[in-house]
Write a protein that binds this DNA or RNA. Structure first.
Lengths: 129, 129
DNA sequence: GGGACATCTGCACATCTGTGCATATGTTGC
DNA sequence: GCAACATATGCACAGATGTGCAGATGTCCC
């Protein structure tokens, strides 16, 4: 990571097996910044509590913090903390109603992602059964 | 979390705002075990190095370890480590050819997931620009 | 068999991450 | 303004995670 100057372009120094493919991958794959963003988003989904919150919201559309906590069996503090992270990343959106805040999934991309993932997981579980 | 016995069913002790919705969410959302699996899979994608590896494979189909390392600018050790995790979770599959091992994405679900995610990330980036 | 190469694994370390408690913020109704 | 409630935040700690180095495994070529 120190990148003293000979990181990317001097890769030719070590002969690659398929330089053409590597070149394609390097140019077409997400940039470092983009992949960091993508990874950050995936990591956000990579916690059971947050995952369950998202699927709960996927099912019922909208819930306040205390209901979310009850639905996924976590403390309200944990729920609030999780929702904070999800909200910052714009995975969920909050709507204030009196002293309560109702959360919902931010957009349809997230919904599709959750649907697809669950489908994959179930498909996968069958295969390993 | 100590769950002395009054965690799940006694939730009624604290009046919920929308008990009906909570009940639906509790029954329809992934079970604890399933959500742990889902989270584990997301967490696996939640590392920039692994993310980049997956997108590189998405682009060129198949690569050996040293080419992967070159394509995403990480050491071969890191690549091998990352691939081990991805392989154990059956996100990628390895094929031995001589002393080299070629890796590829395991199934089409993963490909769709990656495509959808990148689309979402780009859409998101536009919005915040 | 022996050496060279590609990949894998085990171990130790710095870092990050989730959790729980206590406390702060903001809102309602009086 | 004050008390009660819903939610948010700051801090400290235990546990998980990525990284690098050294060594092990397995494969090819002679």
């Amino acid at each position: 990571m120190t990148a003293a100057g000979s990181t990317a372009l001097d890769a030719c120094a070590v002969p690659l097996v398929h330089p053409d493919k590597v070149a394609i991958a390097r140019s077409a794959a997400p940039s470092l910044a983009e992949s960091v963003d993508l990874a950050a988003m995936f990591r956000l989904l990579g916690d059971p509590a947050r995952t369950r919150i998202l699927y709960a919201l996927l099912e019922v559309g909208e819930l306040c913090v205390c209901d979310i906590a009850a639905a996924v069996d976590i403390t309200e503090t944990s729920a609030s903390q999780a929702l904070r992270l999800l909200r910052t990343a714009r995975v969920v959106a909050g709507r204030r109603a009196g002293r309560m805040v109702f959360y919902r999934l931010a957009d349809s991309h997230v919904r599709m992602l959750l649907d697809l993932s669950r489908e994959h997981a179930q498909h996968d579980a069958e295969g390993s059964a």
